[in-house]
Amino acid sequence: MPELLQFCVSGLTVGAVYALVALGFTIIYNASDVVNFAQGEFVMIGGMTTVFATAAGVPLPLAALGAVLVAMVVGLLLHRLAIEPARGASPVTLIIITIGASIFLRGLAQVVFDKQFHSLPAFSGNTPIRFGGAAILPQSFWVLGGAAVIVAVLWAFFNRTLIGKAVLATAANRLAARLVGINTSFVMGLSFVMSAAIGAVAGILVTPITLTSYDVGMLLALKGFAAAMLGGMGNPLGAVVGGLAVGLLEALGAGYISSTYKDAIAFIVILIVLFALPGGLFGKASVERV
């Protein structure tokens, strides 16, 4: 029993990071129909920038804030320089552009940073908290709490602010959004900046547990994508549930079957979703009222 609890806690911790990556996918996909495979690079930029800034003597909170800002600028540039000029291109073309951008960002990170693995000191020490026979790292609470705060802030943004509703309106009907005066290009840029910030926060919070390096983004993007697919592409609630589910499955699979197959679990999830449940758990049937 303590074993199961232990697996669940570590699964949920990693799952929270997948959930944040999946949320990033969802926000950009809804605003612009782009599946942004450079989403994992935002996570990497968040972690790596914080590592190098703290190594240079910047206090951790300031370094973290700076890292989020760097990621936001990268997100904005990605939209302005790579996505916006290709406006009107087919979804496949746009996906290829984001894959190209992710390769470019990985290469740039090798040059700007290095090829080593890096860690950050845990924010509240490394003394595990004993709970029901399981040992929980304090950093796990940072990750889970951080994810919860981001979800709450996003909920308030989309449901309580006019600009948030303008983003939803753009997702629902781009033509109508332009006709009521919403600058949809601005909305798309905003969605890239927000997704970048969310990814960077995830990267900063999880680095003390999982380490980071220039190439952590690729696998995170694929697992976050699996989570978004499982939840139903475009559904924010689905992204969170999907992320936690993929994390849990991965931890349980690694614990009870073999850790060799840990990374395969996310891909098995993608296959099962594609075969059995193409709309995902919370996906709406593609029927529209006319």
Binding site: K165, L168, A169, A172, N173, L175, A176, A177, E288, V290
Partner: peptide, 8 residues
């Protein structure tokens, strides 16, 4: 075709 924001 009206083009309302259906989910909102």
């Amino acid at each position: 075709g009206r083009q309302i924001f259906a989910p909102l």
